Amino acid sequence: MNEEPTPAATPEPEHRPSFVEAISANSKVAQNADGGIDVLSTVGGVRGILETVVPGFVFVIVYAVTSQLSWALISSIALGVVFMVWRLATKSTLLQSLSGLIGILICALVARTSGNARDYYVPGFFISAGYLLALMVSIFVKWPLIGLLFGFIRNESLSWRQQPDRLRRYSIATWLLCAVFLLRLLVQLPMYFSDQVVSLGVARALMGVPLYALALWFAWLISRPVQGVEAAAEEDPAA
């Protein structure tokens, strides 16, 4: 008696991450053991901060001392290369140092093309303006980017969008990041137009990663769930 062949099991459809899940996965937002945000790891650690801040700071120091644009550019680029070699020597990821070196090269190209040291900082203005615009648009369309970054880390997925208080908190947190980029433009653009290269360089260093990290930490605190309210809602679903 011939047995009927057992039908093959239908494979489960492969889960493909959505666009917002992809944003969260690539955000590199790290948590500490207590479940809070690890700001230092999120911004790349001590090495990441050095790679971001020091080349621009060295550029302005060398320019202030020598008044030579060429030497300032060479020093900045050389330092970017040193950081990249350091990454290679320690067998760590090259992404941050490579992106940092590319950024330095773009800034150097703009300054060399114009022949004016202050133009070294022009690409940064466009980056700040771009982030500011993206953050503001995300708030207006009720998809605040901080919610997309923090929501999956907190296992909220996208449920926070259906809760007015959570949506409001994530919107406020995103406005906080908007304030960082807006403040950079308000402070640094007048320095640029008045040709205050040294002051601009110092402001760029101080208002870069340190200010961003501080705002990110406050954004995490502002947007954290109110545990008492959530527990009450779970106990009384009809509330």
Rank of each mutant, 00 (worst) to 15 (best):
F150A: 05
G45C: 05
V20S: 12
K91W: 06
V122E: 10
L94E: 14
D119T: 08
A64N: 11
S128C: 08
T90S: 14
I61V: 15
A72R: 05
S97C: 07
L135E: 15
A111H: 03
D34N: 10
P55T: 07
A25R: 15
V137H: 11
S99D: 04
G45P: 02
P55R: 01
K28P: 02
Q31W: 06
L105R: 01
I77A: 06
V82K: 00
E51P: 09
A117V: 09
K142G: 05
E14T: 13
M84Q: 15
S41I: 09
L148G: 05
G35P: 10
A108M: 05
V137E: 12
A78M: 09
L69N: 06
I37P: 00
A89T: 14
F19S: 11
I23G: 03
A108W: 00
Y131A: 09
K142R: 15
A30F: 09
V82T: 06
Y131W: 09
V54N: 00
I61W: 08
A111R: 04
G103Y: 02
L101P: 08
A108D: 09
T113Y: 14
V58R: 01
S76A: 15
M84I: 09
W86T: 10
S76I: 08
G48L: 03
V46Y: 11
G80I: 02
G44V: 01
V65I: 14
A30G: 03
G115C: 04
V43F: 03
I61T: 11
A89G: 12
S24L: 04
A72Q: 04
I37L: 10
A134P: 01
F57K: 00
F152Y: 14
S76M: 15
F126L: 13
G115R: 10
S41D: 13
L135K: 11
L135P: 04
A78H: 04
L145K: 08
V65F: 13
V29A: 07
A22Q: 13
S70K: 12
K91A: 06
L145G: 05
I146A: 10
A78D: 08
A64F: 12
I106E: 11
L135T: 12
L105A: 13
K142Y: 02
A22D: 06
V39L: 07
G103W: 01
A30Y: 05
L73G: 03
I37F: 03
W86L: 13
G80H: 00
A33M: 09
T66R: 11
I106Y: 06
Q96F: 03
W71G: 12
F140W: 14
L69P: 01
L40H: 01
L79F: 02
P123T: 06
G36C: 10
G48D: 08
M136A: 14
L133Y: 06
V122N: 07
S76P: 08
S24I: 05
H15L: 11
R16W: 10
V20H: 11
F59E: 00
K28C: 07
G45V: 04
P123S: 05
Y121E: 01
L79P: 00
I139P: 08
I77D: 04
V58A: 07
I106K: 10
L135N: 14
L79C: 04
S76R: 03
A25V: 06
P123L: 03
L109S: 15
S75Y: 06
W86V: 09
F59I: 08
S27K: 03
S18G: 13
V29Q: 00
S97P: 11
W143C: 07
G35N: 06
A108G: 10
V46F: 08
F125D: 05
P11V: 06
L95A: 15
A64S: 14
A30D: 02
I146M: 15
T113Q: 13
